[in-house]
Design a protein around this nucleic acid. Structure first.
Lengths: 144, 144
DNA sequence: TGGCGACCATCAATGCTTTGATAGCGTCCT
DNA sequence: AGGACGCTATCAAAGCATTGATGGTCGCCA
């Protein structure tokens, strides 16, 4: 209507992110994982025993989305949930052995994608890109 | 595991895109549209009579995703589908009056988001950002 | 102690997206 | 003419994500 797509920064941003998702999806798929599942397992490995809500915050999704995701992971035997020692109603989440294996397999290939992406740029360019992306996120979040 | 999140360009890219989606979702919601619906209506307004498959290509989604999306738009009375004059089985898609109205309302607010984003950067920065995002998409697509 | 507010977990409805499979129609080439 | 190939459209199943609503638990504080 009033603004051509090539002028919309959002179009370019979306396109890049779409390719990123496609590449990562292909990377983690052989491990039997989806990208969100991989992200959750990765966060979980860094914070064992974290709650579902905490994991949701770490992965930048809603608690509801994480509930669904965790149910799938639990049914696949990749994570376990156990009641919190003194806080009734809370659940601690832990990786299973099988979960650790799947994460390791997925991570190896996912890191290759990140490395290929990083190697496209010089260190100065990387810094500039990270800075600009951060500014995008900041200005957009103020609009919300 | 082997690579901290802050070093992963993908994390920053994803974060920025997530904020973009949130801002756009909030922008087009008052018009009763979702972001993908808005994108489809926008593409449709530029190519009246385009097929579902063509629209899917224009929006960078699969034909199946577009079928679902169009069904919702058709049920909402925002688009119409009519059989192709001589090619049986093909369907031409057109905006309805109501669809044009919703698009106009959504577009006005969506453009504000794009403008706020654009104004965060100088023209030189914008060019650099677009260039770098294009390089991201290119290198990632070769991995696929 | 009683209550209020914050947080956690979960159900339900809706929508987008993907992969996989099926089926019709056209075009081009043998 | 017949057949292969390609494009279109659609169904089905599964996962991810959102909003909205519910019910349970803790902790602080009047």
């Amino acid at each position: 209507m009033t603004m051509p797509p090539e002028e919309r920064l959002g179009s370019h941003l979306k396109r890049a992110e779409q390719e990123l998702m496609a590449a990562k999806t292909a990377a983690v798929r052989p491990a039997g994982l989806t990208v969100p599942q991989y992200a959750a397992l990765l966060a979980l490995s860094g914070s064992p025993g974290i709650s579902s809500a905490g994991l949701a915050r770490a992965c930048l999704v809603t608690p509801q989305a994480m509930t669904v995701l965790l149910r799938n992971l639990e049914e696949a035997g990749l994570v376990e949930r156990s009641p919190h020692p003194w806080h009734k109603g809370l659940l601690e989440i832990h990786l299973t052995e099988s979960g650790r294996g799947a994460l390791a397999r997925a991570d190896g290939r996912a890191v290759l994608v990140e490395r290929a992406l990083a190697e496209e740029f010089s260190p100065e360019e990387r810094d500039r890109l990270v800075d600009m992306l951060g500014r995008c996120a900041r200005v957009l979040s103020t609009l919300r």
